[in-house]
Design a protein around this nucleic acid. Sequence first.
DNA 1: TCGATTTTTACAAGTTCTTTACATTTATTT
DNA 2: AAATAAATGTAAAGAACTTGTAAAAATCGA
Lengths: 222, 222
Amino acid sequence: MDYLIYSVEDDKNIARILEVALKREGYEFCHFLDGNSFLSAFYKRTPNMVLLDMMLPDIQGSEILKTIRKEERFDDVEIIILSANRMVMDKVDGLDLGADDYIEKPFDILELISRINAKVRRHIKNNTVTYKNIEIDFDRHSVRKDGVLIELTGKEYLILSMLFKRGEKVLTREEIYQALWGQSAVESRTVDMHIKSLRRKLSDSKGQFIKTVYGVGYRLEI
Amino acid sequence: MDYLIYSVEDDKNIARILEVALKREGYEFCHFLDGNSFLSAFYKRTPNMVLLDMMLPDIQGSEILKTIRKEERFDDVEIIILSANRMVMDKVDGLDLGADDYIEKPFDILELISRINAKVRRHIKNNTVTYKNIEIDFDRHSVRKDGVLIELTGKEYLILSMLFKRGEKVLTREEIYQALWGQSAVESRTVDMHIKSLRRKLSDSKGQFIKTVYGVGYRLEI
DNA sequence: TCGATTTTTACAAGTTCTTTACATTTATTT
DNA sequence: AAATAAATGTAAAGAACTTGTAAAAATCGA
């Protein structure tokens, strides 16, 4: 299914219940006992969903929420707050801070699963293409390398998506110019610039993924 | 589109879902409720892709897989295993036996479609011509000898593609000059140079593949 | 307006193409 | 068959062209 869920939760029993239930549903799941180990993993490999306890030993859950939501590239990560604290304040605050849902402890595991499934169904609109370890999602306009979100600018995304749609076949400079500016501009080095940025962001400095076809254009190498 | 997909699946509901979704995508689709009726159809009209359930009423899915993969002429048929059985064994075995992908039930139909689309994009025969053990791919601007990629420069590629289009018939120097520079340049040794490079890159130093027709031009030797 | 993005500039680096000069092969003439 | 002429093969050099790159300038969008 290829859907990764992290939980941050200092109660090992709850973590265990989540693990069993979510893995049975076919999700990839990892739990973390504190905020710091979670954040470190989060930056290494960004999950699709986070189940976030607000009461953690080291960092406030709301701080984690703020940290994630500060960066636009993480907009697609669903964050669900799990909290024992019944104060309405918390709920409102959490949603204000950018959480996508709020579930009160103690929760019914079946209900939790069904709410998660519902979200995933809505969330997976899988209009994606993957080459090597790089995935482009045409719906979200997002790109991941090894599961980690890569932030691209508009033009970079457009060129990369053209390349992905074309695959191994050559995409000529002329076609890129036509698509981006509706005309040819043979003298300009703009496309090269964007290709360079793409290669840098995708750690492809030698052009092993985005191949140059001398005198013609570019193509992907599988 | 001209892409034929078979499924072997004893669950009529799943078969129905597949049928609706795949036909909407423009694929030609047939489903079979058991292994024997599938195999019989398979030999009558071989499909491009097979969606194979491992748990069938009559034959084991793995047997079907082995049967198909035994024959080299079916190498191009993509086989995707659909299985409810989560045992890793199954997955590893299936891929070992020559399946191209493995999708677990219950699967998300949208995800399945997107994975099929991705495979089809990559699989659909390219715009290629083959002589002897050399294949030219007009879309990629690439050439393979015994399946190994040969890097050609622009002019080399142009001349070789002219030769491939002409086949055994002679391609005159005059024609090459006309095509490459729009004029004749009888004094120049440039074409000879490119022919030499081509022969070197194609390991054809004696000109057994690209024959010289003295006083006229060049032609391919089948 | 400010910050981010895009484009231009100017040069560097890299690749391909052409020429040159001579060698070799093939055809023609004697 | 030998000599000659014509066509093609070949290696090397550098000319011509294409692409890479960093930084500055212009433009765009919130």
